[in-house]
Write a protein that binds this DNA or RNA. Sequence first.
DNA 1: CTCCTTAATGAAAATCATTTTCAATAATAA
DNA 2: TTATTATTGAAAATGATTTTCATTAAGGAG
Lengths: 158, 158
Amino acid sequence: MPYGKCQGHGWWQGKFRGCGYRITAAREAVLNTLMLSEEKHMSAEEIYLSVHENNPAVGLTTIYRTLEILNDMGMVFKFDFGDGRARYELASGTDDENHHHHLVCTACKKIIDYKEFIDDELELLRKTEKGLSEKYNFTINTHLIQFYGLCEDCRDTR
Amino acid sequence: MPYGKCQGHGWWQGKFRGCGYRITAAREAVLNTLMLSEEKHMSAEEIYLSVHENNPAVGLTTIYRTLEILNDMGMVFKFDFGDGRARYELASGTDDENHHHHLVCTACKKIIDYKEFIDDELELLRKTEKGLSEKYNFTINTHLIQFYGLCEDCRDTR
DNA sequence: CTCCTTAATGAAAATCATTTTCAATAATAA
DNA sequence: TTATTATTGAAAATGATTTTCATTAAGGAG
Ligand SMILES: [Mn+2]
Ligand SMILES: [Mn+2]
Ligand SMILES: [Zn+2]
Ligand SMILES: [Zn+2]
């Protein structure tokens, strides 16, 4: 459970109100599921099934709609790891200590979070972002870094 | 037209034969289209339409099948830029002078190829790849780096 | 060059994640 | 409490990609 960014209850309610969104049980349930799913990179349907356990009334459509809102607000990252469905992860700010990148096994689709070289990477990213935004007049908000290859298990099976 | 990696004719035919694939008009047409589409990041359907001009007999299914093969062989990169369809680009080896990364405008979906900071990035990537593959016993084949934000036009429209 | 095996192909149907529609419900401002 | 309107669920629609299957054509053997 990620703490520190969630002070007590309702750390997210303010953000919702600020954007003109209403506070609903479905939205709270989605956020709760995501907070408990660190490292899991859940799909919409997986989140739906999880939410469904405590809130059987919430439909899959609402899950999709909530995830889109959360993504637009920057509270959730949406990834494409190449398995045909989007996967989601609670966003920790770019400079947060939870910031990480991914190793994707192209064989079994396993995802490994890593942050061992994040410091060097982020330093370079900052430099690159600065250069790029100047040269192309482009306002950079996020970045995506993924390494693709074969995990230990899949390599051995070759 | 990318030269240097295509020596005369049929630079790709050897690769095909080596993998047990047959040489067909459809496959040649797809490769030709991709070679003439630098910086365009075409979708399967766009490639289909382009191929269709000279080869009306080639169907969309074959385009998809060919692109999958090319991607498996590492001759083509497949990207998800967030507009709901896959987009393709002829691969230049990782250390090729054509290697580049992308700037993606989340508003108008425009893609900008850049390679100005590629050298520093690649140097860091090599270091990171080495560390990661050792720590996680992961064999890294490719990487993906994209920056998301607003292009000049879309930022001004705000 | 001809024949043979089987990979490759096109058209149509099937998949399936995600989106849209629309009438019913519920969050919030007054 | 009431009025306003965002939110919601169910069902239908969408649309990119995949699968099926009968037909065609690469390319190796002779
Ligand atoms: Mn992660
Ligand atoms: Mn490109
Ligand atoms: Zn694996
Ligand atoms: Zn733009």
